[in-house]
Lab assay of single mutants.
Amino acid sequence: DKPVLAIQVLGTVKWFNVRNGYGFINRNDTKEDVFVHQTAIKRNNPRKFLRSVGDGETVEFDVVEGEKGAEATNVTGPGGVPVKGSRYAPNR
């Protein structure tokens, strides 16, 4: 398990590439950019086929120490709701 650095952090999605399945979230508290992989998205938009977060979307997440620095995990919308997802992700 990766060491946990912070829990229930709010941030804004800087960018997310649906095809490659990753992007970055900017933390509201430290203004640090945190890597996010599609496997870290815990509550996906049920209408979306692929797990994703949308550019500019506000999300809540935990921060863990990854191999290359801070990574987001347990990604949801604020308060644990499903994320909205990327407009580029296909609908079901």
Rank of each mutant, 00 (worst) to 15 (best):
T39P: 02
K84D: 06
E60H: 05
G54C: 11
D33E: 12
T58I: 15
F35S: 06
E71K: 11
R92A: 10
A89G: 07
G79H: 10
S86I: 04
G56E: 04
P78I: 08
N45F: 01
L50F: 11
F16L: 14
V81T: 14
T73K: 13
V83P: 04
G11S: 08
G69V: 01
D62W: 00
K48S: 08
V53E: 00
E60R: 11
V81D: 10
T76I: 01
S52F: 01
G56C: 06
D55H: 11
A89K: 08
N74D: 05
N28S: 08
A89H: 06
V75S: 00
S86Q: 07
P82F: 08
Y88V: 07
N74W: 03
G77Q: 04
K84E: 10
W15R: 07
N17S: 09
P82W: 07
L10V: 12
N74R: 08
F61T: 01
R87D: 14
K68N: 12
N20D: 11
E71Y: 15
T76C: 10
G80V: 04
T58S: 10
S86E: 04
S86C: 06
T58Q: 14
P78M: 07
K68H: 12
V59H: 01
E65A: 15
T12P: 05
G80L: 03
Y88M: 08
A70V: 12
N26Y: 12
V63C: 03
N74Q: 05
V81G: 13
P82N: 08
V64A: 05
V59K: 01
E71L: 11
T58F: 08
N74A: 07
V64F: 04
F16S: 14
E60V: 14
V59W: 00
V59M: 01
V81I: 14
K84L: 12
R51G: 04
N91H: 10
P78L: 06
V64W: 04
E65P: 06
F35I: 11
E65H: 14
S52V: 03
E60Y: 06
E60I: 11
G69C: 06
T73M: 15
V34D: 11
V83C: 08
V83Q: 03
Y22N: 15
D62N: 10
L50R: 12
T39A: 08
L50G: 12
E71I: 13
R51E: 05
P78K: 07
T73N: 12
T76E: 04
G85Q: 04
G85P: 00
F24L: 09
P82R: 06
N28Y: 13
T58C: 11
V75T: 00
R92H: 12
R87T: 12
P90Y: 10
V59L: 07
S52W: 00
I7S: 15
A70F: 13
T73D: 11
K31L: 13
T30P: 02
G69A: 02
K84P: 03
T58E: 11
S52A: 05
P46C: 07
A70C: 14
E57K: 04
V64L: 09
V64N: 02
K48C: 07
F16V: 08
G85Y: 01
V63W: 00
P90I: 09
T76S: 10
R43S: 07
K48P: 03
D1G: 13
G79Q: 10
K48F: 03
V59I: 04
V9F: 07
V63D: 03
V4L: 14
T73Q: 15
T76F: 00
P90F: 10
T39S: 13
N45R: 03
V64H: 04
G56T: 03
K84A: 09
V75K: 00
F49S: 14
D29E: 04
T76M: 06
Y88P: 06
N91R: 12
V59D: 02
V53W: 00
G77V: 05
S86H: 11
V59C: 05
P90K: 14
V59N: 00
G56V: 00
V63L: 07
G85C: 05
G85D: 03
A89T: 07
N28T: 09
P78G: 02
N74I: 00
A70Y: 15
A70E: 10
D55E: 15
Y88N: 09
